[in-house]
Design a protein around this nucleic acid. Structure first.
Lengths: 354, 354
DNA sequence: CCCGAGTCTTGCATCGATGCAAAAGATCAC
DNA sequence: GTGATCTTTTGCATCGATGCAAGACTCGGG
């Protein structure tokens, strides 16, 4: 069956194409009679709007793109779900893209690789786009999710990573922990900020330097968390009394390694993570974690995106071939969304060891 | 900065629009000189193809849509990842959609709601589209993933659920379990088939009926698994010696409930799941599960989709307004992809209790 | 020096829907 | 009856890229 076009409907109903368009788009000045007849033809032929064609003419597709590193990572999967839900409320359809953590892919997106199919882009960048990219301003609606080191020219939405990490570590300190491992430093900006929060908390609590321990990993995955903690336990250094994992996946891996070595959680080692993915309520023991408000992130980022989409001409106003003039920089908002600490068994110690 | 079109590039390079198109699309008969000049203009102006416009003309967008119930559910998230990866190898971009398990949304997709933006659709249907929809043939490339009860008019790709369930239960029987709970029956076709596999295995092993126990749930989530097993343990019936969960999320919930009640796994109760989501390797204890070959599912379904996309006119050939004639039914392939049993601690009993 | 066979380049129509503005038809006051 | 006003409907151009086929140009053989 060939595609049913407005023209087919128009012929079937004996009206012009334009009238069909008017009916479909709800233009008020159509006689009830005509409207009914056209509607009948629409139903009968099973007409479906071609959004591409409409998008071509109107410049809007009704789609936004959400690009995350790995769809299969629980945090990003849950974030995607939240964005899809929030977008649905606004009548926007979300296209989820996966960058595979490839900075080349991320760079292409920043340069506009998705703008032709989407009215705007939400990008959760993992790796760091090259410095030359950092100097660019996007010429289309773009909002960054989470942290990245691209600079301030893009609006961003996410929790305050330094504060969140500090909160997590403070909680461990309150439980009496002192020799706290920070698990998850890697090349990412996110890792840097969470390390900084750790250091701030440790420093403020006047924990002796010998008890500071930052363990690097490559990716924030269960495997890496497991591996790193296993090696730590096999080493001959004194055992830590807590692990602050930079995300829940790492924490899950850490829990597994501790469990396998017979280390009791939280009695011997307390554990906290960040993200509060659904899985974290079901670990052994249930994991204490920092829960970012995903709905707030989704709502806020969509609002910022719509703001940009409505702004005439988009954020970049420079003429073709020129760079945006530095004088007219629109300061991009850094939006810090709320988060809260969910205390579960993995860090709940009966007695603080003060 | 306004969008850079081929026309802009053409003017800048002093050639016709068509020549620019030829350069962009790699048409061979372009002089090196011209090609270089056009390429320079392309780079200088930062030209980006408008895929919508191209799609409008050529009828192909280069996108396929993948619709799953919940992106945040680990199984679907991992499936999406596999599809994205497989599609990438074929130069196809995937748009991930979430149906929220809403049968209305699923119906719209079957009726072609995504065909305007995607060349083909992969649908993982959760709920059952209404019977009247079942009578329809799609007029666009569509492949169903997993099970559903729509009938045989759609090609499907997935594991053989009955066999997979049977394999899981046989494994438990081999471990000496007899009083085996089947956890997860609900209204879905998938649930029906896994129940059937359970019954086949139990029956073949001549397990007495009194030991058969099918526990219903609403959704296949951790919460529901937890809830159901908690209630089971609180009841006054004899304890089961194994739980066969219809998916890993349910199993994770079951493990948590067992753990909370002090029931030892696998000594007191063995547990197996289906899906082998990444999380399952990190549960306490690690979960035995049936691992469907997601890459095979992704590859096979994309192959089937491409097959349909190449077939002239698509699967439905009926004239507008007519139903496909029953005589010319193309028998839709039911593709059974491989799976394997991954045995981990949760079901490994030292001694079979024959 | 001309012709046919390439090679390279171009103009025009087209994909499906909408913006624009004019045409056609209805309604009303005078 | 007639012009003014408002409602309803329509034709045409357009969005950006490509299919098609013809035009312009180059080159070697006769």
């Amino acid at each position: 069956m060939a595609r049913v076009r407005m023209r087919d409907v128009a012929e079937h109903a004996g009206v012009s194409v334009r009238t069909v368009s008017n009916v479909v788009s709800g233009y008020p000045h159509v006689s009830p009679d005509t409207r009914a007849r056209v509607q009948r033809s629409l139903d009968e032929l099973g007409y479906r709007m071609d959004y591409l064609a409409r998008g071509l003419r109107s410049g809007r597709t009704g789609f936004i793109a959400l690009a995350v590193p790995f769809v299969a990572e629980p945090y990003f999967a849950e974030l995607a779900q939240a964005v899809i839900r929030a977008a649905g409320r606004r009548g926007i359809t979300v296209l989820v893209e996966s960058t595979a953590g490839d900075s080349e892919v991320e760079r292409r997106i920043i340069e506009g690789g998705l703008t032709n199919v989407a009215d705007g882009v939400l990008l959760s960048a993992l790796t760091l786009p090259a410095a030359d990219v950092a100097a660019k301003k996007p010429d289309f609606p773009l909002v960054m999710l989470g942290e990245h080191s691209v600079g301030d020219q893009f609006p961003r939405v996410g929790i305050d990573n330094v504060a969140a990490a500090r909160t997590a570590v403070e909680h461990l300190l309150e439980q009496g922990c002192r020799r706290i491992v920070a698990l998850g430093r890697n090349g990412s900006e996110n890792g840097r900020q969470r390390t900084e929060g750790y250091e701030q908390a440790m420093s403020a609590a006047r924990v002796r330097r010998v008890n500071w321990l930052v363990v690097p990993v490559e990716d924030w995955t269960r495997d890496q968390g497991h591996e790193a903690v296993r090696e730590l336990l096999e080493g001959d250094g004194p055992l830590p009394d807590a692990v602050f994992a930079f995300n829940d996946a790492l924490a899950v891996g850490a829990l597994r390694a501790l469990d396998a070595s017979g280390v009791r959680v939280p009695e011997d080692v307390a554990v906290v993570g960040i993200d509060a993915i659904q899985e974290s309520a079901y670990t052994h023991p249930p994991l204490t974690s920092i829960a970012p408000d995903l709905d707030a992130i989704a709502e806020r980022s969509l609002a910022l995106l719509e703001e940009q989409m409505q702004a005439p001409g988009g954020p970049g106003e420079a003429a073709p071939g020129e760079d945006a003039q530095a004088g007219a920089v629109v300061v991009a908002a850094q939006e810090a969304t709320p988060y809260r600490l969910i205390v579960r068994e993995s860090s709940r110690r009966g007695t603080a060891l003060e």
